[in-house]
Design a protein around this nucleic acid. Structure first.
Length: 290
DNA sequence: AGCCGTCTCTTCT
DNA sequence: AGAAGAGACGGCT
């Protein structure tokens, strides 16, 4: 089955552009010594340069050239340097729903530890659906208390993507329900619908440590970034950056909990559960909107 | 080389 | 079963 094809671009106009954009990003970053020109890329994709330029700019909000600039080491370092201290000190109440656009997708969350999850969550129903997003096909999962999972699938590995998510909460009952998740998708990926008055409700399910790390991520505003060790310090375990990395990598709410804004100390992108290209894409996409 | 949370496997109650 | 401990293993520094 090809879900992506049946969905068309039901979310945002940029949604259907991602496949193209992804290839472009891959080509121009994979070997930056031999960075291909836009013409080369266009030719390899079988498109005209002007058409490609247009597609890319519509998606990114930046020209390919500007985009490339926005995902270089240099720029990453700048994101890190913007005085990050104040934002990390902000308390939750203020941080998440207060003034001052912290996370631009305003979010309220409740946390569920594995214990609680076991007690209350066994048999809890999770509805899921696939939706076109600016970052490829998105798998959206929700309980009746809010958004619980967000993952991405590249061409037709929806199965693997679903498995990746369901094995995290093996006790839940899963129901494929496109209609239940459509509204979430619509709202998450369309920045015009981000609204502090009606924050998005999310449910965080994980260990204490993981929750603390994810909460820290939620406080990084759009267009900024922090290092793993920053987060370690913030959760009160300054030497635990390695462990932080692991916890960040287990984030079940990709994009919504902005784990793509966590970088290595030198500004390198290190890893990303859903592919480094996607991390790059998110950072660049945000740069075009910040 | 160290740091530290998770996961897995083992052992002990 | 369930608790407790040993070892291995990372989106690090």
């Amino acid at each position: 089955m090809n879900i992506a094809a049946t969905l068309k671009s039901d979310i945002t106009p940029e949604g259907s552009d991602y496949e193209t954009v992804r290839k472009v990003i891959e080509m121009i970053t994979e070997d930056y010594r031999h960075q291909p020109s836009l013409d080369d890329v266009a030719m390899r994709l079988g498109q005209s340069p002007t058409q490609l330029q247009k597609t890319f700019t519509r998606w990114a909000g930046l020209s390919p050239k500007a985009f490339l600039q926005a995902v270089t080491l240099d720029h990453a370092k700048r994101l890190l340097r913007q005085e990050s201290m104040p934002l990390l000190e902000t308390s939750f109440e203020v941080g998440l729903s207060g003034p001052g656009r912290l996370h631009d997708l305003f979010v309220t969350h409740e946390a569920m530890s594995p214990g609680e999850w076991k007690a209350r969550g066994a048999g809890l129903t999770i509805r899921y659906g696939y939706h076109v997003s600016p970052f490829g096909l998105a798998l959206v999962m929700a309980t009746d208390r809010g958004l619980a999972g967000l993952a991405f699938a590249d061409d037709s590995d929806e199965e693997a993507c679903l498995a990746d998510m369901t094995c995290r909460w093996p006790n839940a009952v899963y129901v494929h329900d496109q209609e239940a998740t459509a509204a979430y998708a619509l709202r998450i990926f369309d920045s015009a619908r981000w609204n502090p008055q009606q924050p998005l409700r999310i449910v965080l399910i994980g260990s204490d440590f993981q929750i603390r790390v994810w909460e820290a991520l939620l406080r990084i505003p759009m267009g900024r970034a922090v290092t793993y060790s920053d987060i370690a310090g913030q959760v009160g375990q300054p030497t635990a950056s390695r462990a932080v990395g692991a916890a960040v990598g287990r984030n079940p709410l990709s994009f919504v909990v902005p784990c793509h804004r966590a970088l290595g100390k030198g500004g390198a992108l290190t890893g990303y559960h859903w592919g480094l290209t996607r991390k790059r894409a998110m950072l660049g996409w945000e740069a075009g909107r910040a």
